[in-house]
Amino acid sequence: MKAIVSVLGKDKKGIIARVSGALYDMDVNVEDLSQTILQDFFTMIMAVETGENSPKFDVIKQNLRELGDKIGVQINIQIKDIFDAMHRIDTK
């Protein structure tokens, strides 16, 4: 399943490392990544795909939420289809 992970919050060390690590542990592959920092506000968008050994979507979501709480940022995961629907005319 293809999905988008978004990470929003105050910039600090190790955000990318910890989020990628958590995804790796859940057999989720990072296909693309972009990040920007605006006035100390960190925004990272990752395009990911879940693997054969990934837990269920709600478990991935919960694990990422808990990680976010631990490092003080907001981490969310949403399936890719919602962004196709809202931002692309041609959704196939």
């Binding site: 988008i4 972009s34 920007t36 968008i45 931002h87």
Partner: peptide
């Protein structure tokens, strides 16, 4: 890939 603006628009 979507732009950060698009992703944030949906989230907001």
């Amino acid at each position: 890939m979507y732009s950060t603006k698009e992703i944030l628009e949906t989230i907001n």
